[in-house]
Design a protein around this nucleic acid. Structure first.
Length: 277
DNA sequence: CCCCAGTCCTGCGGGC
DNA sequence: TGCCCGCAGGACTGGG
């Protein structure tokens, strides 16, 4: 579930390792299927140990540690991964530990309950190939209105599934797509090529607003409690959701409609049929 | 090319 | 009460 706001919160929490030297890269024994690590852990370890973390960044829904070697160590949490500096939710799902010297935090952990996430090391060129160019669109926080429109307006798909396409715009996931479209007053079923210029503008504005608000509240921790910030604290934005997982309740915006749940490309979408056109 | 369904995986909640 | 099935959805793969 980590989308842009949750991954950005993880990134900010992990800033305490900036300038640290990686003393050890430790793959923790996991009773079930081990987490995917590329290249194999022994080779990856040789390339990261002794290296300095010169940047703690984010690319889409990934936390990216840039090292002084030019390599980037990428944590891709997918559904249930967390980047932590302390107190994991459970010891059993800890996957990787980085021990560091010379920075504010002694260790960084990668925790992942379902283990769908990935930890991988990329050379500069590999980074451009895997996470650049046509693989990933501009970041949802910094994309311009014109870019967003240019990348989606030609499509005949429905706008909600289109917003989940990371090649078009990076960072929006299932939860925030519903929230963004609700604030913008646009039906999730509206075809991209049927949005007006004013609607693109509104959609772009609401994308920034919703994502920035969610970051301010340190992301959304749903009822399963999985998502936590780097200090294992729950986020707060779930208390501000207007449509997501609120099927049957009155629309908090127009007070007239009832929030509906539909399925688009096998994923739940929540919206208000009264005020989203 | 464009789009959709299936896959990975675990834990939880609904239904019987 | 207890068990089992289905669902949650990020990103990739394969196929129409």
């Amino acid at each position: 579930m980590p989308e842009l706001p949750e991954v950005e919160t993880m990134r900010r929490g992990a800033l305490d390792i900036l300038g640290g030297v990686i003393r050890a890269f430790v793959v923790l024994p996991c009773p079930r299927k081990p987490i995917a690590i590329q290249p194999a852990a022994s080779r990856l370890r040789k390339r990261v140990e002794g290296r300095t973390v010169v940047d703690v960044g984010r690319i889409g829904k990934r936390v990216v540690l840039r090292l002084d070697s030019g390599d980037s160590l990428v944590f891709e949490p997918r559904m249930t991964g967390l980047v932590l500096l302390a107190d994991p939710p459970t010891a059993e799902h800890l996957r990787v530990r980085l021990d560091l010297d010379g920075c504010a935090a002694p260790s960084l952990w990668y925790w992942d309950r379902r283990g769908l996430g990935l930890v991988y090391l990329l050379r500069q060129r590999e980074l451009a190939e895997r996470l650049g160019g046509d693989k990933l669109g501009p970041d949802a926080l910094t994309i311009t209105c014109d870019e967003l429109r240019a990348r989606l307006a030609g499509s005949r798909r429905e706008i909600k599934p289109a917003l989940l396409d990371q090649r078009a715009v990076a960072g929006i996931g299932n939860l925030y797509a519903s929230e963004i479209l609700h604030r913008a007053g646009i039906s999730p079923r509206r075809k991209c090529d049927r949005l007006t210029l004013a609607q693109w503008r509104r959609l772009w504005e609401c994308t920034g607003e919703i994502l920035e608000e969610a970051i301010r509240y340190e992301g959304s921790t749903l009822s399963d409690g999985t998502y936590r910030n780097a200090l294992n604290q729950a986020g707060g934005y779930q208390n501000h959701h207007r449509v997501y997982d609120r099927e049957g309740s009155a629309c908090p915006s127009c007070k007239l409609g009832t929030i509906r749940r539909i399925v688009q490309t096998q994923r739940a979408t929540f919206y208000c049929p009264k005020c989203q056109k």
